[in-house]
Amino acid sequence: MTKNRVFAAALAASAAMAVAAPASAQVAGIATINTMEVITRAKAFTTAESQLDTTYKPVRDQIQARQTKFQTDARALIATIDTNKDGQVSEAEEQAAAARKDPNYTQLMTLQNQANEEIQKLQMPSILAELFAFEKILALYDAAQMSVVNARKVNVILQPEAIVYAPDAVDISDAVVAELDKTPTVAITPPANWQPQQRTVQFQQQVNELKRRAYQLAAARAQQQQQQGAAAAPGAARPAAAPATKPAKPEPR
């Protein structure tokens, strides 16, 4: 499954998907639109995400390498704090190590802070680039929505989940996507000292949450397929019931 298809699946699981709308007048001036679904379907959004993935892949590889280095350097120190030897450091074990001023714990915190600082510095250019692209796309969305509102004489726009029943003509999502797609690309390089609007930061947080859910869905489906494949293998013991699966922790972007 491609990244975009998994992302769409997460969106479908988290919000009501808009229904395709015919090019007819709105009902009593009322319309519905799923803003997040519309923006993430737009060519400008998918193209920007692809460009960011390509442009900042070397940096993301550096980040992954730095995370791996910290995990390697920290392994021996963590083992000394893990007093019950269960392979994990509980909150109680961490508090106990801090209380007794364990030098291994102090060194571990130093390594973690150093890694975090380096990773944040590496991440900042790509984060700003994504925010810059998103701010451009949000401005395009505002203009596209207003164009459709004026063309269809819409007086009120509601989220789809706020509607118990409405005919298909109420939804304007496809019309706004079509208007958005008249501008298929946006810039991803912010000027010096550029700062994003709060709205843009909030939108990026929503996108990141959808990506997290997408990774969880993909991991859960992959695990389910593995279990089904193992159950169907010749000579495999058939389980009495399918075990519950816990979604894997998503990989960082």
Rank of each mutant, 00 (worst) to 15 (best):
P191C: 07
V156L: 15
I33L: 15
M1P: 02
T54Q: 14
T200Y: 01
A222S: 13
P243Q: 09
A222W: 03
E94I: 07
A18D: 06
M124K: 15
K136Y: 03
N193F: 14
A15L: 03
D61P: 00
L217P: 02
A9S: 09
M146K: 14
A169C: 07
P250Q: 11
K249D: 09
L180G: 01
M124Y: 13
Y141H: 07
P250S: 12
P190Y: 10
F132W: 11
L131Y: 02
A98I: 10
I157Y: 06
T80C: 08
D181P: 05
V164D: 07
R60T: 02
A192W: 08
M17I: 10
R41H: 12
R238A: 12
A79I: 03
M109E: 14
T35W: 01
T106L: 06
Q123R: 15
Q107K: 15
A97T: 05
A230E: 11
E93T: 05
T200I: 05
K101H: 13
K136W: 03
K182S: 04
A97I: 06
F203W: 08
D171L: 01
A175P: 00
K246I: 09
Y165C: 04
S147V: 02
T55P: 02
V201Q: 08
V59Y: 04
K57G: 04
A10P: 00
I78N: 03
A236C: 10
E93F: 09
N193W: 12
M124P: 07
R100P: 01
A23R: 11
K85E: 09
K136C: 04
A222F: 04
D174N: 15
K85R: 09
K85Q: 14
M1Q: 10
P167E: 05
L158G: 02
Q202C: 01
T32L: 03
T80Q: 12
A20C: 06
K3F: 15
T80G: 05
A233R: 08
Y141K: 00
A21G: 15
Q159T: 10
L111N: 03
A187Y: 08
D168W: 12
Q226E: 15
F70E: 01
E117G: 04
L122D: 03
A25L: 14
Q159S: 09
F134S: 01
D82C: 08
D102Q: 12
Y141C: 00
Q112H: 12
V170G: 05
T54P: 08
V27R: 10
T47E: 12
A97N: 06
L138C: 08
M146V: 09
A12P: 03
V38M: 05
T46P: 01
D82F: 11
D61A: 11
P243M: 08
K246E: 10
N104S: 04
Q226C: 04
Q228C: 09
A92V: 10
T72K: 14
A98K: 15
R100I: 08
K153M: 11
V201D: 07
L131V: 10
L158M: 13
Q206H: 07
T189I: 13
S173C: 07
A42I: 08
I33C: 13
T40I: 00
D86Q: 08
A15G: 12
T185Q: 13
Q71T: 11
T106G: 00
Q197Y: 10
W194P: 00
Q225V: 12
